[in-house]
Design a protein around this nucleic acid. Structure first.
Lengths: 324, 324
DNA sequence: TTGTAAGCGTTATCAA
DNA sequence: TTGATAACGCTTACAA
């Protein structure tokens, strides 16, 4: 590895001068500056991040953490983050693992965006501080150094269900996501509230517990098909499970929406192709906004008010008009 | 930040003893060891990566670099890498940017897997060395420290086209990807060779240049529809473009495969839902294998022979049977 | 079994 | 405008 020392030696100056040049300090002669730049080029010198990290001087790097590879819209979130970060001369590193804890301090990154549910609240509260702000997605943490960016799940889910009811559907089934997650709770509550507001009953036996993966929707639908009577409409807490369910129905000759309507949540790529009625979450924007708040907070703002992103309902063929 | 010093002070020992404990050296008394472990726990001490990186002692971390967010199968590659890496007690950091160059040396990571085309061959050749091996995906670099893992594009493309010809199709159009990429060249060559082997003509005006994105396929199809006569079959260098083309056809009332057949390459999620005939690339496995070779080379092997991954042809509804 | 001290590559302070 | 030197958090000879 060629280091700052090699550059200094080659240029016949001290390391501090080289350092000053590299950090755009004003106190270096133009001539020296040019010479050093040229030598860096020649030796293709790359400053060593580790050495740099030792001395505070906050790095212009943020960290993003996620881990569920089945949810392909995560790429869009990354895209949004990446774009904002690049526009602001920051770098981005991504970590898919609990191990990212070790990068979460000022020696390497100056803030994090956390999506992985496996990162526990207490850990984040411990890691966050004035000089290391954190943005969490899809959950709310109250802490002076942690900003929450969440999707408003309730309103669009409620409105979508109302729309389905308006189209004549009366008997509902529900496939839930991981029960402890805030977004699943919110989606389910909106669903129940909408039913109640319309004086429609919901029986616990029509609830199926899933895990947001396609397979769990597939299994739930298989079980559902064993019962004597299908509901009119199967509401799923996300698209992956809805798609799994639709595949199970298709395999068994059950038509959507004639025999059963299906709704999802996320508007993933497949949702459009499968004609799934769902709620569209602006994922690119979500990442972009999260990155914006994080970098603003890194730059000294103290904005930790929870931010709610609006989502949009998209009616497609998986819901029809029901004549009773 | 709580550092090794704080732990040492709390435990009433020297930093070296703490360091020895943390690195599982044999030369520490059991009692001391236990006490130190407990204190680390209490203070929730996290070793500082920067400090660690300064002293050789190769980090158990590898880097993955990519940047095209439209290609959702990248997540599957990451998934494969992540799994192998975790099973082998390595960590993974991902970088979406040219900036990752600065992490590509032994102070932070001990090897890289490179997918981003923007990373130039010369740069990689400069960065790679005995103690910093690199694995490149989708391109071939001949260098004693760089291993290439590529998909065999030629054979499945050739065979798929032969299959299409066997089904009665005779007049072909082609939408290509970025012209400089090796995989695009290979796919196109296989296409041309298959035609030639069957004594079928191909005119340059039936070639459309795309960029692997859905939009470019959409545009190409729009242009194609302006011509007097459609080909029987539109071959696309990847799925995204094929899907874009199918959407354009659908919007214009042109039926697939009755009016025109379409083929892709990749077998992305949407391909199944859209019934696209395509070539399935085992992406998870690709990532897994790349990670395996990288870590083996980090551990001292010198295996840099180019590895070719086989792909599988999947015929779906977007190609039918043509009666001439 | 434990501690001392040098050194990794960089930046910051202060003196020249 | 430049250079010497301490310091960052950690590992590792080597000494005790």
């Amino acid at each position: 590895m060629v280091g700052i020392k090699d550059v200094a030696k080659q240029a016949g100056v001290s390391v501090s001068t080289v350092s000053n040049v590299l950090n755009n300090k004003k106190n270096v002669g133009e001539e020296t500056r040019d010479r050093i730049h040229k030598i860096c080029e020649e030796l293709s010198y790359q400053p060593n991040v580790a050495g740099k990290g030792l001395k505070s001087g906050k790095p212009n790097t943020i960290l993003f953490n996620f881990s569920d590879f089945d949810r392909s819209f995560y790429l869009k979130i990354i895209n949004g983050i990446s774009d904002y970060v690049n526009d602001n001369d920051f770098d981005l590193i991504i970590c898919t693992d609990k191990s990212c804890e070790k990068y979460m301090n000022n020696s390497l990154t100056s803030g994090s965006i956390i999506l992985d549910k496996k990162m526990q609240d207490e850990v984040l509260i411990r890691l966050a501080n004035e000089s290391y702000p954190i943005v969490v997605l899809d959950r709310i943490i109250n802490n002076p150094s942690i900003k929450s960016v969440v999707v408003n799940n309730y309103d669009p889910m409620y409105d979508m269900i109302q729309g389905v009811i308006d189209r004549g559907y009366r008997h509902f089934g529900f496939i839930g996501g991981p029960e402890e997650t805030a977004d699943n709770k919110e989606r389910y509550k909106a669903f129940r509230d909408a039913l109640e507001a319309n004086h429609l009953e919901f029986q616990q036996k029509s609830y199926f517990a899933g895990n947001y993966r396609e397979k769990s929707g597939y299994s739930a639908a298989k079980i559902l098909m064993l019962s004597r009577e299908l509901p009119d409409c199967l509401v799923c807490a996300n698209d992956n499970m809805a798609i799994g369910a639709m595949k199970a129905f298709r395999e068994n000759g059950i038509r959507v929406p004639e025999d059963i309507a299906v709704t999802g949540f996320d508007n993933c790529d497949l949702a459009e192709a499968m004609g799934l009625t769902t709620v569209s979450i602006p994922n690119y924007e979500r990442g972009y906004i999260a990155a914006r708040y994080l970098i603003e907070n890194i730059r000294g703002q103290r904005n930790v008010e929870t931010f709610k992103i609006a989502a949009k309902i998209i009616f497609r063929n998986s819901v029809g008009i029901k004549n009773n």
